[in-house]
Structure formats: C-alpha cells, structure tokens
C-alpha cells in the first residue's frame, strides 16, 4: 500500500513540474497563437541562471526569485524585438523564428557555462524526508507540488479576477476591438509572453535540484510538455493542469504495473485522446 501512495505522490510531483513547464507554453499559444519552440530552452536557460545565482550568492531562494525574472526579461526582449516584427508574416515565420531562438539559447548556454553537468542542490531546509501516511517522502518534492498549485491559483486569479486578465482575454478574442478602445494591445501581448517565459523560468529553477543542469535539459522535458498542451487543448490552463497530473500519474503507475510499456504510455494516451477529440480535452474547435 505504501508503494502505491508513494507512486501517487511521485505522479503528482512530476505532473506539477510538467504543468509548470507546459503552462507558459499553452498560455502563449492560446492567447497569442504563437507556438514558441524556444519555450523549453527558456526553461533550460533559467536553470543555468539559477545555478549562477546560487554560485554567486549561495541562496536557492534568491535564485528562484531572480532567474525566472531574468528569463522573463529575455522573453520580453524576444517578443518586442523579434517576434513582433515577424508577426505579420504568419505562424510559419513565427515558428521558424522561435526555433532559431531555441538554437541560439542552446548554443549560448554551452558557450557561457560549457557542456558539463552543473550541480544545484535543494535548500538545506527542504533536503529532508517527511513522513506522509507511512511514506518517507522528500520535502523538496512536496514543495514542488505546493509551488505549482500556488502558480496555478495566481494565474487563474490574474486572468479571471482582475482588470488585466479581462483585457488579456478580450484582446485574445478581438484584438482590433480592444485596440480601438485605446488599450495598448502589443503591450498586453508582450506581458503575456513575459508571463509565459517567467513560468518556464520558475520551472527551470524548481526542477534543477532534482536533475543536473546540462544542455540536454530542454530536450529532456520538451516532449512531455508538448504532449501536455496538445492533449490538454491549446490555450487551456485548466486542461494543461489536469493533463499534466494525468501524465505524471500515468508515468508513475506505468512504471509500477506496466514497466515494459512505461515509456510509450504517454504517447498512447495522446493518440487515444486525439483520436476521440482532435482539439484536445479542453481545446476549442476551430470555427
């Protein structure tokens, strides 16, 4: 029984990390219609920035604060000076541009930090095991779960309970009308893009103590994050949350009960959902 509880918690923790990565991606895709191929590279960049902040200050918490903000800053610069300029040329141009940025980030981190694995440990206060229903569980993984829930609530609050959220949603529905009302729509989109990369940044620093910081980090998480937004439905934050949790649980219990198929279960899940509902579980049908 303890093993099943532990697997459930592993699934939840990994699902939450997946949500942190995928949420920014789905937000930008849903609100701006941009499939940001550089998203997971921003996630990796933030892990490296986090490592650097810890190396300089010794504080993980400072890293968790500063690195995502720096990453968001990089995202904003990308949106303002690159993405905005190619917007008129359609989604293909945007896709190619974001792929180019992905390569630049990838080679950039190698040029600055090299190709070696870099260490980043959890803060001392979270490097302990806590007893939950008889299961000794790492406190840091519990922190990850809490962090993801807090970010979900924050994003939901901003989007659905504030004036800014209302403007964002209106701009997504009819940017021209919102522009005519005197609201600076490009600024709104820049803010959304910044928020998306900030979430990737938070995920990057948060996951670094579990993994090693390396140039392979983006590729490691990228595929699973894309599965989450495809199955969850483009632009659906709730969908991303639910599917991320399902993916996490599928991975954990897959290893427990069907270990020989564990690596393909997510793909089977995606194929089944898309066969039944091509727009994803919470996606909207194109009119």
């Amino acid at each position: 029984m303890e093993a099943y509880i532990a697997q459930g918690m592993h699934g939840l923790a990994y699902g939450m990390v997946l949500f942190l990565v995928a949420s920014g991606l789905t937000l930008v895709l849903g609100m701006m219609g941009v499939l940001n191929m550089a998203h997971v590279n921003f996630f990796m960049l933030s892990a490296y920035l986090g490592y650097q902040v810890v190396a300089w200050t010794g504080s993980f918490w400072l890293a968790l604060l500063i690195a995502p903000l720096l990453t968001a800053g990089a995202g904003i610069l990308m949106e303002r000076f690159l993405l905005k300029k190619v917007h008129a040329f359609g989604p293909m141009a945007e896709l190619i541009l974001t792929m180019g940025v992905a390569f630049i980030i990838s080679d950039g981190v190698k040029a600055v930090w090299g190709t070696q694995n870099l260490p980043l440990s959890p803060p001392g206060s979270l490097s302990v095991l806590v007893n939950i229903a008889g299961v000794q569980y790492p406190a840091y993984r519990l922190f990850l779960i809490g962090l993801a829930v807090a970010i979900l609530l924050l994003m939901a609050l901003v989007l659905y309970k504030t004036r800014l959220g209302m403007i964002v949603r209106a701009a997504v529905a009819d940017a021209g009308m919102v522009d005519a009302l005197g609201i600076n729509v490009p600024l709104v989109f820049m803010t959304v893009f910044g928020a998306g990369t900030w979430m990737a940044g938070v995920a990057g620093v948060a996951i670094a103590p579990i993994l090693t910081v390396s140039p392979g980090l983006a590729a490691q998480m990228g595929m699973d994050a894309f599965i989450v937004i495809i199955v969850g439905g483009f632009g659906s934050l709730g969908g991303a949350f639910l599917v991320a949790i399902l993916c996490g649980l599928l991975s954990a219990f897959g290893v427990q009960f069907l270990p020989q198929y564990a690596s393909v279960l997510l793909f089977v899940f995606m194929a089944v959902v898309l066969a039944i509902k091509p727009e994803g579980l919470f996606g909207e049908k194109e009119s």
Binding site: A3, S251, A252, V255, Q256, P259, S263
Partner: peptide
C-alpha cells in the same frame, strides 16, 4: 528488473519499486 527510457526525468517511480 526494469529498463527506462533514455534521458529520463524522474527516477522516483523506479526507486520506489527498488525500495520495496
């Protein structure tokens, strides 16, 4: 006896099996 995919992110489910 288990075989995991290359570049796995989360080893926790395997480690739980090993523990038990």
């Amino acid at each position: 006896e288990d075989y995991h995919k290359l570049f796995l992110t989360d080893f926790a489910p395997y480690l739980t099996k090993i523990k038990t």
